[in-house]
Simulated scan of single mutants.
Amino acid sequence: MLANYPINLAVCRQYQLIKLAWNGYQCAPESLDAVILDKLEGQVEVAQRLMTVVLASPESVDQKVAVQEVDVAIEQLQSQFDNSDDFNLCLEKQKMSKKQLQQVIYRDLLCEKTIEAQSLHVPAVKTKEALDYYQKNKGRFSHPERRKVSHILITINDQYPENKSTAAKKRINTIRDKLRDNIDDFSKLAMQNSECPSALNNGLIGTVTRGQLYPELDNLLFLMPIQTVSSVVESEIGLHLLLCHEIYPPSELNQAEALQEISLQLYEHRKKKQQKKWISSLLSVS
C-alpha cells in the first residue's frame, strides 16, 4: 500500500522542486539559473511545511487516493518526455525510484484532495449576486486581444556543451534560417529541437493574452503579423522563436457570458478563502 510506504523527505523535496520548475518555467531544475533555483527552493520549503500539516490533520484520514489516480498522474508526467527511456533516465538523475515517485505523487494528490474537501460545502453563488456584481462592473467584462502562438525553446546551460551560450545561439539561428524558406516546417522543427514540453504538441503554447508570457516574448508577440516567425528573443529560461498563428481582437462579453464568468469567479474565491482559513488554523497550532 502506498499509504504505508516509508516517506523519504529528501525525495519529496526533489519532486516538489521538479514540479515547480516544470509548472513555472517548463524545464528541469538543472536548467535554471542560481537565482531562480534559490527562489524555487524557498517555495519548496513552504510547500513541504504545508503538506506536512495537511497530511497530519484529522481531515486527511477521510480522503482516499486510488492507485489508478497515481498511475494517471505518472502517465501525464511521462508524456512530457520523448520516450520511456528518457523518463527513466530522468528518474535516475534525480536518484528517485519508481516506487518513491509513486509515493510522492500519492502524498501530493492526498494533500490536494484534503484541501479541496474543506470547501465542498461553500454555498453556490446566487443569480442576484452575480447580476449585482455585473451591473456595478460592466466595464470589466470583455475579452482582451488574444493571440495563438507556438514557440521553439533552446535553453542556455553551461553544464552542457550544446547549451552553452555560443552553441545555443548558433543552434537557434540555424533553425531560424531554415524557417526563412519554409514556415510550414515550424511544427517539425519544434518537435525535433525545442527543449520545452510544448514540443510534444508541435511547439504550440496556445491562445494567450498580454501578461501570460515572459515580458520579452509578450512585447514581441503582440507586435507580430499573423503567420510570421519572430527574430530570436531571449528570456530568463533561454532563446525562443515565436510563430503567431492567429490574432483575436478585443470583444465584449454578453450578459449571459459575464454572469457565468462572475458566478465561477466568486465561487472559486469563496472556496479559496475557506481553504486558506482552514490551512491558517492548522499552521497556527503546528
Rank of each mutant, 00 (worst) to 15 (best):
L242P: 03
D85H: 13
C244V: 00
L120N: 15
H143C: 08
R13Q: 10
C244S: 09
A34L: 05
N88E: 11
N23V: 08
I172N: 04
E234Y: 06
L242F: 06
V285F: 12
S84A: 15
V35Y: 10
F87V: 05
E69S: 11
V46D: 13
F81G: 07
Y267S: 09
R210L: 04
A199P: 01
K138D: 06
L220D: 02
D177R: 14
Y15L: 01
E30Y: 13
C111T: 11
Y15P: 02
D185S: 13
R180N: 14
R146D: 07
D184N: 12
P215L: 10
I172M: 00
Q16M: 07
L101N: 00
K170E: 15
V104Q: 02
L282Y: 07
Y106M: 05
K95P: 06
K136T: 03
E30R: 13
E129N: 00
I237D: 08
R49F: 00
G24F: 01
Q16P: 08
L253F: 12
L179H: 08
E69W: 03
Y134N: 06
I18S: 06
S230P: 04
P144A: 11
S119R: 09
L37G: 00
H151Q: 11
N8P: 05
V11L: 01
Q135A: 12
A168M: 09
K148E: 11
K271P: 08
N202F: 14
N173H: 15
V44H: 01
L91D: 05
K136D: 15
T174G: 07
E75Q: 15
N173P: 09
G139A: 11
Y248M: 10
Y160M: 05
A124Q: 10
L266R: 06
A258P: 01
N173C: 01
I205M: 04
A168W: 01
V46Q: 13
S150G: 09
E112R: 12
S284I: 02
K148H: 08
M51E: 15
N137D: 07
E45P: 05
L179W: 03
L20G: 09
E75S: 15
R171W: 10
E195C: 03
V125W: 05
E268W: 03
D158G: 07
W22T: 06
Q78V: 06
G24C: 03
R146Y: 00
L200W: 08
L282I: 09
S198R: 08
N201L: 10
D158S: 15
G139I: 08
D82H: 12
D184C: 06
N23D: 14
L110K: 07
D86G: 05
Y214Q: 11
K188E: 12
P250V: 04
R146C: 01
S84F: 09
L20E: 03
C12M: 13
Q265F: 01
Q159R: 14
C111G: 06
V72M: 12
E216P: 05
F186E: 06
A73Q: 10
A10N: 14
E41V: 03
Q26S: 12
S286M: 00
I7R: 15
K126H: 10
L204K: 11
D33C: 09
C196F: 02
L77Q: 07
L221T: 02
L200G: 08
I262C: 07
Q118G: 07
K128R: 09
T228Y: 08
R210K: 15
V61G: 00
V229H: 01
Q118E: 10
L17E: 07
A190M: 02
L200H: 14
I154R: 02
R107C: 05
